[in-house]
């Protein structure tokens, strides 16, 4: 890892400049004696300039209201403003409504409209598809053709099917034929702190390797997989097919670096699960782990942009 400014390539972020412009860096730098104490720790410093020319791509963003509590950034304009302030240039947004509502056609139409109206060019809609729903093929067509979405988001645990369900295999085939990115969400909340009447187990991803291996063209992003999902074995899944892992629920000290020892840098994407989670928690994980400039660039944006380019 380089410790000094490289200087030669303005498109590549140096460790020093990254530290000095991230949210925590003001506090961190002061604590480490690098510069005077920050005047206002409450106002997150923008990551602009620290995120490279492409900024951050957050692959794990949500719109709407979470049923369990009001979230500080649940209004789309406030969320967009925070994302922008922290250097996010593209956010792949799903809908909380997609977890609970049965009329997913309407959910996806609202999501697409909200991204157009409020997204200011930042929000990219990822529609929700439920392969156990009798109308899922029409929902998929609308996502791809009418809403021009680059991908879809799946919730096997909230929609009540297992990954070895033949309906999911058919959906993955259709999504692959349409060139859609498939995001599979392994969990939303820690099972320990769920509402006692709204308990949803994590997705058992054990069958995923076989699904990937038999679909070499499928591009899948696994979201919120890092918490207690014992069946998730990143190296095995990475070997099986085209899969990327987000970092929203990745825990343990130096978690991103640890993941990058298991899979290549091309398999890890930035994801925050904002506004359900604090966006800054995911941002700081990039700072906690000692990453090379190439690893940082890949995780921050390049991997996600590569996925999008292949779709386009």
């Amino acid at each position: 890892m380089r410790q000094k400014d490289g200087g030669a390539d303005p498109g590549r972020l140096s460790r020093r400049s990254f530290l000095c412009t991230t949210t925590v860096a003001a506090a961190a730098a002061a604590a480490a004696g690098w510069r005077a104490e920050t005047a206002d720790a409450a106002a997150p410093d923008p990551l602009i300039g620290a995120t490279g020319p492409r900024g951050l791509v957050d692959t794990n963003v949500w719109l709407g209201q979470w049923p369990g509590r009001r979230l500080p950034l649940e209004e789309t304009p406030a969320l967009v403003a925070r994302l922008r302030r922290q250097g996010v240039r593209q956010a792949w947004a799903g809908s909380f409504d997609g977890l609970w509502h049965k009329d997913l056609g309407a959910v996806n139409a609202r999501l697409a409209a909200e991204c157009r109206r409020q997204g200011r060019g930042l929000l990219t809609p990822f529609g929700t598809i439920n392969p156990a729903d009798p109308a899922w093929e029409e929902d998929l067509r609308r996502c791809a053709e009418e809403h021009q979405m680059p991908g879809i988001r799946l919730h096997p645990n909230y929609h009540g099917y297992q990954l070895d369900d033949p309906a999911l295999a058919r959906l993955l085939d259709r999504a692959g034929q349409r060139g859609l990115i498939v995001q599979l969400v392994a969990a939303m909340e820690d099972e320990r702190t769920q509402h006692p009447r709204m308990r949803v187990p994590q997705v058992d991803v054990a069958p995923l390797a076989a699904l990937l291996a038999s679909r070499p063209e499928l591009r899948l992003v696994l979201l919120n997989w890092g918490r207690g999902a014992n069946s998730v074995q990143p190296p095995r899944l990475a070997e099986a097919g085209q899969i990327c892992f987000d970092i929203a629920t990745l825990e343990g000290v130096g978690g991103v670096a640890s993941l990058l020892r298991q899979v290549s840098a091309g398999r890890v994407v930035f994801g925050s699960c904002a506004p359900l989670f604090y966006l800054e928690s995911a941002l700081l994980k990039l700072q906690e782990s000692p990453l090379t400039e190439a690893q940082l660039a890949a995780v921050r944006a390049d991997n996600a942009l590569r996925l999008r380019r292949r779709v386009s």
Binding site: L250, G252, V253, F277, Y278, E280, S281, K285, E288
Partner: peptide
Amino acid sequence: GGRSFASQLGKVLGA
């Protein structure tokens, strides 16, 4: 070490 310093620090800095 079970949790990340970062994920928990974000609770404060992002509040």
